[in-house]
């Protein structure tokens, strides 16, 4: 049934949405595009939680909720543990035969921003993956603490101007490289770890469904272009996402059982990283004479990463 539902976009568009409008996310926010694609990928019941971040504060403004599924409002760090706890309880009730709808198999999904995933909630996520709960964790990676005013997170890439790493006369912005969260989560031995982007909807929905079908903890890193903090016009969200995936800044791949790596999207025409950087206001200071060398370094880094991914895919390690 799932295959039929996502065979093409026309079939997929018959999904009944379980995420409602009039949430307070910015116009053009990629978060809700990702959430819709995740929720529409299944018709099963959902048990969701969100760590503090744009998604949480914008979809649960008391007295309103934008969620048409069971959804838990919880702290910054423990969205993953809240869902893990619900999953553990579900298992216990199932073993005791006390489920009210035993024929239903709900899906457990936790959402978190990159701040909640890369930094603040990392220990909790690591714990959930170590214990092996049957859940999915979706990281909405917009590379900055957008909810609190654009502070850098450990996902912010080199050269980006954030409010705590502003670019100016002295500094070119963020100085640390982005954490490789995919490798870290794969190193937990998770059965399924994947990187997705909302503009490649078919790839994304296929990975989400694969994740739902997998038993055990699943990690999804979803690129979420942020119109406010990346500084581009709201209508360009999908165009910027296309630039990110086609320039290989954000390669789409999956790692199965912590070892086997598959690249799921190979752009026909790889565009230079310069085009991706130039489209965003947070990198505009790189296009000056004294900072231009950073763009070449970016390109070298992206090429090296792509090369490494391809070698790993070939090696089947």
């Amino acid at each position: 049934m799932f295959q039929a539902k996502t065979k093409n976009l026309k079939n997929f568009s018959t999904s009944a949405e379980r995420f409602e409008g009039a949430n307070l996310l910015c116009p053009g926010c990629a978060h809700s595009i990702i959430v819709r694609e995740v929720l529409n990928a299944t018709n099963d019941n959902l048990i969701l939680a969100a760590s503090t971040g744009c998604l949480e504060v914008c979809t649960a403004v008391y007295p309103h909720t934008s969620w048409d599924a069971s959804w838990i409002h919880i702290g910054f760090e423990n969205g993953s543990s809240a869902v893990a706890g619900a999953e553990a309880m579900y298992k216990a009730l199932k073993n005791k035969g006390r489920l009210k709808q035993p024929d239903r198999t709900p899906k457990f999904v936790a959402f978190g921003g990159d701040g909640a995933t890369y930094d603040i909630g990392f220990q909790w996520i690591s714990g959930c993956f170590e214990r092996g709960h049957d859940m999915m964790y979706v990281c909405l990676d917009n590379e900055v603490y957008a909810n609190t005013g654009g502070q850098r997170s450990s996902s912010t890439p080199i050269g980006a101007s954030a409010t705590t790493t502003p670019a100016g006369r002295i500094s070119y912005g963020e100085k640390q490289n982005k954490k490789d969260i995919m490798a870290i989560m794969a190193a937990h031995g998770a059965p399924y770890v994947a990187q997705v982007a909302p503009n490649k909807w078919k790839d994304m929905v296929a990975k989400i469904q694969k994740g739902f079908a997998t038993e055990g903890p699943v990690f999804i890193n979803a690129m979420s272009a942020c119109t406010t903090e990346w500084k581009f016009a709201p209508e360009d969200t999908i165009a910027i996402s296309d630039l990110a995936t086609d320039s290989l800044v954000f390669p789409l791949y999956e790692i199965i059982d912590g070892t086997k790596l598959n690249i799921t999207y190979r752009p026909k025409n790889v565009i230079p990283v310069r085009d991706y950087l130039g489209a965003q206001g947070r990198f505009k200071h790189l296009f000056t004479k004294q900072n231009e060398y950073l763009i070449d370094e970016w390109q070298a880094r992206v090429d090296a990463k792509w090369e490494q991914l391809q070698r790993r895919e070939e090696a089947c390690l």
């Binding site: 079939n11 568009s13 018959t14 999908i238």
Partner: peptide
């Protein structure tokens, strides 16, 4: 083609029966 439906962040494109 439903591109507007899948990429709308605010569930504001109404699609029924494809």
């Amino acid at each position: 083609c439903q591109f507007c439906w899948i990429y709308c962040p605010d569930m504001s494109i109404i699609s029924r029966d494809k």
